[in-house]
Design a binder for these strands. Structure first.
Lengths: 333, 333
DNA sequence: TTGAAAGCGCTAACAG
DNA sequence: CTGTTAGCGCTTTCAA
């Protein structure tokens, strides 16, 4: 049987309270008993049970992370950074892939509650606020990532998508492009919408007339981007801004199939700066989300809330950054 | 306060044992009390505490997954499939990124033990068997993924790397290549070694003389592959087999820099068939690991062990498969 | 500086 | 079919 605090106490000739105290560094324990307890614990390979300590009122030191899909490199990278930071602060991460399916989300949230996780990080597109509201009402620490939802009393960290879209368009405009296609991920997701808005704003500012036919809406897959781009290409844009790297890759593929050279005949710019952007040919110019910073911030926010340090809910908006690579160039025609 | 089984019992006018029974579907409960308990639970939004039930002797329904790095698409995909299967069977997944750092591994294993996870899936290159041996000795269910380590009494699921290497080389040979370069991930990792062995075996079988200069050893990054390939290219191979997709991408990049067209002047074949292989230009021919099947198998094995159904440790070897895409072609010179 | 004892919320005999 | 009761391993007053 696994040794318990009782075994240690008995062998060390002290009470379980004392053993507990040395492991939690609480109370005043003489150095003598302290080292004795530690020695015996080592001999028995004693490991305190977090299950028991959680039941006795302490934290579980587990966080839940709700994301759509780990296979999407953006979320894989986010998960990685979240896990890194969580681990550094003593927390473990329970990963939940929701596929943006509301039922899976609800199910996961319920499970996480049953496991008494200390907090839940939501990086998924929960349409249904109710599940979230309920969580918040039940005092479960929740932090949102990359999702605007200001009506709820919940901290959020996100990228400034509007600025990102603006930067993307500005870059293209600087290169002399005027006929700029747009592939959006979905117009119901606020991040995508903001990117489009930012882009449009830059165009207007530059006096470029708005053309509805230059906007294609897609899902967030390579195939979707390709299909959308195939349609867009008929409008003969000289550049295309895709709302994420996956879509941008689809765009690049469509361009190639249409016999258009990148960047000489068509400039393509993506969004996210995932690992994918570095391996395309040519390497992709993209708007970088500060994924690492996002992951760290979100963990810092939620742990502070868990520790009761944080009263004021806040929204942290991080700025994206243009990464120039080879998929954009000056307009040649 | 969160409602407990006591609150439900009192309101329903029954004992806590009865409430416990209806939630666990154990014992015989009359339909009347059953529905009454359920109704009250719903009204109070009661959620059974898994922490308490775990302490009382049941499972935690959590599994630990040790992987090197979620940013590596192979492991992201593996994690996704493992999570899918685990979730389907009622388990949650705690992700641990070890960066193949032995200290992080040991630390994570210790944490997972303290959390009393029901089992640990190891997909990481633990050099130090001791940590594993200790786990096994302590009766913690452990299953290994993609790592040969037959000396330990532990179930393993892995791809037949030898056959994979053999298939890769055979494909290249069929295309007429005789001077085949090899980029290995590391010769100490058994999977990489086996892939190289399989490749060599096919070459020998075909009577192609062995040339030590055609083997380059690298790490598992794109940059590493590129560097290794740059060296290899001086030996003028007509085809290169890279031991994983990341390396293969590096090879493709090096080829491009050297002004070699793929596949007409250099054929490149990878291994894994991650999402990356579909987005290169040209799309990459690669040896597909059945990642999904691996993930499912490993979860099935470990849960069976958890449930005590499984006495015989076993090694499940899944066969890889050649995926022909555009990065390989018949030798042209 | 240490210990006794009462929980934390649930389970599992066992008895009725 | 239902209830009583003794834990599970740890934390935390409160006394000593």
């Amino acid at each position: 049987m696994k040794p318990t605090i009782y075994d240690i106490a008995k062998l060390a000739g002290v009470s379980t309270a004392t053993v507990s105290k040395v492991f939690n560094r609480t109370g005043n324990i003489s150095e003598a008993t302290r080292s004795k307890v530690l020695r015996i614990s080592r001999e028995l390979k004693y490991q305190p049970s977090m299950v028991a300590s959680a039941l006795a009122g302490k934290n579980t030191y587990s966080l839940g992370l709700l994301i759509p899909d780990l296979v999407n490199p953006f979320f894989a990278e986010l998960a990685r950074h979240v896990e890194d930071r969580a681990h550094a602060l003593g927390y473990n991460l329970i990963i939940c892939n929701t596929d943006n399916d509301i039922n899976k989300e609800i199910q996961y949230i319920q499970l996480l509650r049953q496991k008494s996780v200390d907090g839940i990080i939501v990086a998924t597109g929960v349409r249904d606020d109710d599940a979230l509201k309920e969580l918040i009402h039940q005092q479960v620490p929740v932090v949102l990532v990359a999702r605007e939802m200001s009506m709820l009393a919940v901290s959020t960290v996100l990228t400034d998508d509007f600025v990102g879209g603006y930067n993307a368009a500005s870059h293209l405009l600087e290169l002399g492009h005027r006929r700029i296609g747009l592939v959006a991920e979905s117009m119901t997701v606020s991040s995508s919408k903001e990117r489009v808005r930012g882009c449009r704003y830059a165009l207007e500012e530059a006096g470029v007339p708005y053309d509805d036919k230059l906007l294609a809406v897609s899902d967030f897959s390579v195939a979707g981007g390709k299909e959308a781009a195939a349609g867009l290409l008929r409008e003969e844009p000289t550049a295309i801004f895709a709302c994420n790297d996956l879509l941008a890759i689809g765009v690049m593929q469509a361009a190639k199939e249409a016999g258009l050279a990148i960047p000489s005949e068509l400039s393509v710019i993506g969004f996210d700066n995932t690992i994918l952007a570095t391996i395309t040919d040519p390497p992709m110019t993209t708007i970088a989300q500060p994924i690492r910073a996002i992951g760290h911030q979100v963990v810092d926010l939620i742990t502070r809330e868990i520790n009761g340090e944080q009263v004021v809910k806040q929204r942290v908006v991080l700025l994206p950054e243009l990464i120039r690579r080879g998929s954009t160039a000056a307009r040649s025609e």
